[in-house]
């Protein structure tokens, strides 16, 4: 009975955070469809686990951590756009939709920063994660997350004021 209740609690956390997870993956992969595939895979992995090993309050962070690590793995492996082996025709390129343009705009603004700074700014500003949550996902102290955020923001401020002058 307890197991069933805990299972239900986990499923609720997944449903409540699905939008956030897809958005989180989307900003890192640059593609909504890839993001949904990846989030779905992460959820399947979570559901295969024995939920009694995860604290009820830890499911959300667990999911973000898996998704973050999977996005990193995917970004490292990806050098070309890939398509399934079954389809040997190159797909037509599509007009970028508004959300994709948004992603491109934000990622290009952050492109001048070191990845460890841009990632924290992305997580705090776009994903709405607290510095404690960010520290949890990246396995760094909260204070380190804050100092990288500050360093990145200072560089952005300088970068944006240089852009205005030129």
């Amino acid at each position: 009975m307890l197991h069933k209740m805990r299972r239900k609690a986990v499923e609720k956390v997944i449903e409540d955070n699905l939008d956030y997870l897809v958005r989180f993956a989307c900003y890192r992969l640059g593609n909504h469809s890839d993001a949904e595939d990846l989030v779905y895979e992460a959820i399947l992995r979570l559901l295969e686990k024995d939920v009694s090993t995860i604290k009820p309050g830890g499911v959300r962070m667990y999911l973000f951590r898996i998704v973050y690590n999977m996005c990193l793995d995917k970004s490292r492996a990806k050098t070309l756009e890939t398509i399934p082996v079954e389809n040997l025709e190159i797909p037509d390129s599509q007009e970028a939709d508004s959300a994709t343009k948004d992603i491109d705009r934000i990622n290009s603004t952050l492109a001048g920063l070191r990845e460890r700074e841009s990632e924290i700014i992305r997580m705090n500003v776009i994903d709405g994660l607290s510095f404690a949550d960010i520290g949890n996902i990246l396995s760094i102290p909260t204070s380190t997350a804050k100092s990288r955020y500050k360093a990145g923001m200072e560089k952005l401020r300088k970068q944006l004021s240089n852009d205005k002058l030129s």
Binding site: I14, E15, L18, D19, L21, V22, R23, C26, H32, A35, E36, V39, Y40, I43, S98, A99, D102, I106, T109, L110, I121, V125, I126
Partner: peptide, 17 residues
């Protein structure tokens, strides 16, 4: 930096989940 457009999970993903 704030996004102008929200990104959400599709209905299809919700059904699969």
């Amino acid at each position: 930096l704030r996004p102008h457009h929200d990104i959400k999970a599709s209905d299809e993903l919700r059904r699969k989940v």
